[in-house]
Design a protein around this nucleic acid. Structure first.
Lengths: 340, 340
DNA sequence: ATCAGCACTCGACGTGCCCGAGTGCCAATT
DNA sequence: AATTGGCACTCGGGCACGTCGAGTGCTGAT
């Protein structure tokens, strides 16, 4: 009862089940994969695997199906990297050719990833906090209304309107604009909060409330939750597999996707290994609606640490090596574009 | 064989079918609705209705089901307006209380409508072309890069970056900004294209290419297709009804929703009766994926003509009076907010 | 440790059957 | 001329039943 073969059996079960979507029994296992032993032997191994919680059978006299724990082991130790096919590479190349805007880049990326994985693709906009300020603009837009525009080196443009107590004079606005840019330009936005502390001092006492309001709004804009934006594509892919994939209904899954909070939480949690690929399987998502779902993400954009993440979400029974390869590839190209 | 009763029968069939989701037969028809005739009589009427194409039977010895044509007649002539319930009104009120941004307003509206109708809600951002310019801002943001920000009286802020051949001097930028604002402010954006024609003349010949580039970009931004933005909510509601609602799969429906082009086309087409409620039923959507789907929309925002549209999309077998009421109500509140 | 053999379980599937819902038609009634 | 009761007919859904086969676990032999 070699340990190695047991793992080989688990791998075979996962691969077969992912492909056929049907519980896999001991016979087809030895037939379809190059196991040089008899079905009976496999059965012993399967019993052990089931005992250990890696596989389960839907009902007696049915084949085995991997559990979340089984997929986890598969992903961690059993799966081999899968290279992208030539047409896939071409698709990526051609997509990158003419991207105008950051919006455009993000939009194309998310569609591309959805297309490659045939699942739901998620792209997070470059985090403001991890980007550097390229320019900050103040525009008096109406009585007592000020528009604040923040432009980062990743090309992201964030704007917000601000109600102020009193319409400031043009001179004050100009000075504030100049000072803010002097302090902020080129600086990474995380560091900005402390850097802006002293700015009000430089103004006449009358103007300080205004200055403080503006600075506070900038800080709010940079606040964790508020600034995150994500874009989805390929939700239709979830429904494509008929009722096979989601036995009950995919309504809860769609709900979770609409609640972008859920995805944001996951993305943030998974950001720990920033440039590596992170995988959450089934219950590991910690979300009711995503129990039958896995999420594969990786960071992109930064040299050392990522500026944001992209990911692909599909049924737990998905092609992990393929998905991981696609996610990683798109992230790489995305990084390259943003850098160039 | 009175014509009136035939219509009453059709109405009863629609109402019953919408409620029960099951083909309705002659007996339950006389029982559940106050038809004071025998089932046999109803059968004659139903035969006539089927002959005329308003209803159909899925198979022999099943009850009747309304056809698209039947729903059409129902909507046009048979449905009675349904008042919103008290809790519904309260929900709308409470939603309108604290809306900060335009983004915020739109976001809340779309969620609200999805909640009310239990379907997919669609909100179109106030059209740039039908809004008036409040302010136009030019910001040199990097070498040879200019940021153009357009702010409308509906609160919409649209920004675009622009590559120019040569970095313009601050003086030129300032003059251009001033002139553009002088011409454009307060003017409705549709009229802008012609109004901007003469602006380049006022500049020195060297600067004219730059000026023309900027103006051209503004015009592009206002171009029909490019400027439209829509927001969705409640896609999960489509899946809620189990497999009852969409016999095959709802994948094509989700695809159509992701292809925002489809919805945009519909919204534009339906804009003809701007402030009235427009309904597209099944095949009338002219889109493969939306064959089993109806779309109810109305305009909002303008006094005379609408500044944009909102709508609700659900299965053809939906509660038309209820949906129409909800859509109209939300549109009304939305208009009120934008006006205030 | 592996394997062949065997008894056993249990879901999938096909068949036949019946029931009931619903229809269409016709003749009688108003 | 419209309405209605009666009646024969159709057809899908549900149920009982038997069979088949996939798959298992166990045991004893190698």
């Amino acid at each position: 009862m070699s340990e190695d073969r047991r793992l080989a059996v688990l791998r075979a079960i996962v691969e077969d089940y992912v492909q056929t979507r049907e519980p896999v029994g001991s016979r087809v296992l030895v037939e379809r994969h190059g196991l040089n032993v008899s079905p009976a032997t496999i059965r012993n191994d399967m019993a052990a695997l089931e005992e250990a919680g890696y596989i389960a059978q839907p009902h007696t006299s049915a084949g085995r199906v991997p559990t979340d724990k089984g997929y986890r082991l598969f992903v961690d130790r059993l799966s081999t990297v899968k290279a992208l096919s030539a047409p896939e590479k071409r698709a990526i190349e051609s997509f990158l050719e003419d991207a105008a805007d950051l919006d455009d880049v993000v939009d194309r990326s998310v569609r591309l990833l959805a297309q490659l994985t045939q699942q739901v693709a998620v792209v997070q906009y470059p985090s403001l906090r991890h980007s550097a300020m390229r320019h900050l603009e103040l525009v008096p837009v109406a009585e007592r209304r000020l528009l604040v525009v923040i432009i980062t080196d990743t090309g992201r443009v964030e704007q917000r309107t601000l109600e102020v107590a009193e319409t400031p004079s043009d001179a004050v606005v100009a000075e504030l604009r100049a000072r803010l840019n002097a302090v902020a330009t080129g600086r990474r936005l995380v560091e900005l909060i402390s850097a802006l502390e002293d700015v009000p001092e430089a103004f006449a006492p009358v103007d300080r409330p205004l200055v403080r309001t503006v600075i506070q709004m900038i800080e709010e804009t940079l606040a964790q939750e508020r600034e995150e934006r994500i874009v989805l594509a390929g939700t239709a892919n979830l429904a494509r597999g008929g009722a096979m994939d989601f036995p009950h209904t995919l309504s809860p899954v769609l709900e979770a996707l609409e609640e972008q909070v859920v995805l944001l939480r996951l993305l943030t949690e998974m950001a720990e290994d920033s440039m590596g690929v992170a995988v959450r399987i089934g219950h590991e998502t910690q979300h009711e609606g995503l129990l039958e779902t896995s999420f594969v993400t990786t960071g992109y954009g930064g040299d050392g640490d990522a500026v944001a993440r992209i990911g692909s979400l599909g049924p737990t029974r998905m092609d992990y090596p393929g998905t991981i390869a696609a996610v990683r590839a798109v992230a790489r190209y995305l990084s390259r574009i943003l850098a160039g």
